[in-house]
Design a protein around this nucleic acid. Structure first.
Lengths: 138, 138
DNA sequence: ATGCGTGCAAACGATTTGCAGAGAA
DNA sequence: TTCTCTGCAAATCGTTTGCACGCAT
């Protein structure tokens, strides 16, 4: 199976708008939320397009996705970035990149159990300082 | 907010059937899959009931849930069990409990970033020895 | 000119819920 | 008897897709 030549990608206004909005978000956002922000911003981009664009970004490694029971959340991340995980604020979505000390431990347990690892995911949820302050004050 | 007195739980045939089927699974299964197995087994339990029962088990800490883009998968786990994670076979769903070395590391990064942790999740996906053998042989 | 990207609305699929009846306590 | 649990079907809801048109290349 010869790897597919990377599909041609055109630069359109919507694509730019979506990735810029995603980067501006500084945290995880849902497709719907992003779409709403774009609309509020006067940008025109159909919800379907936002989804499509977001999925493309994720495929190209330019965005991270976390799947929650409520749906998927996206975040801008450099394509060639080092493998990492996130500390996510459940209230505002803000995220901090973290690098858990398990990267070298994983292959070992895998082998011990006869597994071959294809991928793993880990996300830590909580409240950032700001949101904590707000909720406490309220 | 005084904590709610735990809702009364009745013991019904369906409840028993669902949790037994879940335990028999020895791995993660979707609600639909579990429902299918029950049906094939002659058991009668509506899909809605399976979902409700599964959610109840999860709430009561008697089952673990992992949310994948394809939906949620459930696995039986003792209620009072020590906090742990899983090494999951993507092919057959079989899972092995693992205890990553990050449990004491987490509070530190959290504090360093001003976050208070509410919960975290981590799952490792791959292929178990059996499934690897099968796919290789095929 | 070619054919990818977009918009819209319809289609999907997993999960939830309303309601009336059945069965545990 | 009382009130939770069940079944079924309808309703949700996030996400995907078909199709025709516009625009990047």
């Amino acid at each position: 199976m010869p790897d597919q030549p990377p599909r041609a990608r055109r630069r359109t206004a919507q694509k730019k708008a979506v990735s810029e909005a995603l980067e501006a978000a500084d945290g995880f956002v849902s497709a719907q939320e992003l779409h709403r922000r774009l609309s509020d911003d006067g940008q025109t981009a159909g919800l379907a397009t936002v989804y499509r664009q977001l999925n493309t970004l994720a495929q190209d490694g330019e965005a991270h996705v976390v799947t929650t029971p409520a749906g998927q959340l996206f975040r801008a991340c450099e394509a060639g970035a080092h493998h990492h995980h996130h500390l996510i604020c459940e209230s505002c979505g803000r995220a901090v990149e973290i690098s858990p000390p398990h990267e070298d431990w994983l292959p070992r347990v895998a082998e011990d159990n006869g597994f071959s690892i294809s991928h793993h995911q880990m996300e830590v949820f909580g409240l950032c300082a700001d949101c904590r302050a707000k909720s406490t004050g309220a």
